[in-house]
Simulated scan of single mutants.
Amino acid sequence: MATTSTVDAESRRERLLEILNADGIIRLDAAAERLGVSPMTVRRDLADLETDGQLRRVRGGAVPSLRPRSFVERMSIGAEAKLVIADKARALVPAAGAAAFDASSTVGTLLSRLEGASDLSIATNSYENFQVARRLPGAHALLIGGEAEERTDSFVGLLACQAAGSLHYSRFFTSSAAADPARGTSEVTLAETQVKLAFVEASDETVLLVDSTKLGQRALARALDWDRIDTMVTELDPADERLDAYRELTNLL
Results as ranks from 00 to 15, higher is better:
88 K>R: 15
201 E>H: 13
153 D>H: 11
175 S>W: 04
138 G>P: 08
73 E>L: 10
38 S>L: 11
10 E>W: 07
241 E>R: 14
138 G>Q: 13
213 T>M: 15
46 L>S: 07
102 D>N: 01
197 L>V: 08
143 L>C: 12
75 M>T: 10
173 F>H: 01
247 R>F: 06
60 G>S: 14
182 A>P: 03
31 A>G: 08
164 A>D: 01
160 A>K: 09
67 R>Q: 12
119 D>F: 09
20 L>N: 02
11 S>P: 02
214 K>Y: 01
61 G>M: 11
56 R>S: 15
50 E>I: 10
172 F>T: 00
160 A>P: 03
167 L>M: 15
246 Y>P: 05
107 V>E: 00
210 V>Q: 02
106 T>D: 15
5 S>Q: 09
21 N>T: 09
133 A>D: 08
118 S>K: 14
156 V>K: 05
121 S>Y: 09
125 N>H: 15
179 A>S: 14
127 Y>G: 05
135 R>H: 13
2 A>K: 13
244 D>M: 12
232 M>H: 01
85 I>T: 13
36 G>L: 09
35 L>I: 05
173 F>C: 00
168 H>P: 08
33 E>N: 13
129 N>A: 05
196 K>F: 05
201 E>S: 14
20 L>A: 07
72 V>F: 08
2 A>W: 12
183 R>A: 14
129 N>Q: 09
163 A>F: 07
143 L>K: 12
207 V>G: 00
195 V>F: 02
107 V>H: 00
226 W>K: 07
74 R>P: 01
196 K>C: 03
47 A>W: 09
114 L>I: 11
4 T>P: 05
245 A>E: 12
211 D>K: 14
214 K>L: 11
220 L>N: 10
223 A>C: 15
211 D>M: 09
106 T>K: 15
114 L>P: 00
101 F>S: 01
10 E>Y: 06
245 A>K: 12
90 R>A: 15
146 G>L: 12
222 R>C: 07
166 S>T: 08
188 V>D: 02
90 R>M: 12
82 K>D: 01
232 M>D: 03
203 S>Y: 01
143 L>Y: 07
151 R>L: 03
129 N>M: 13
198 A>C: 10
96 A>V: 06
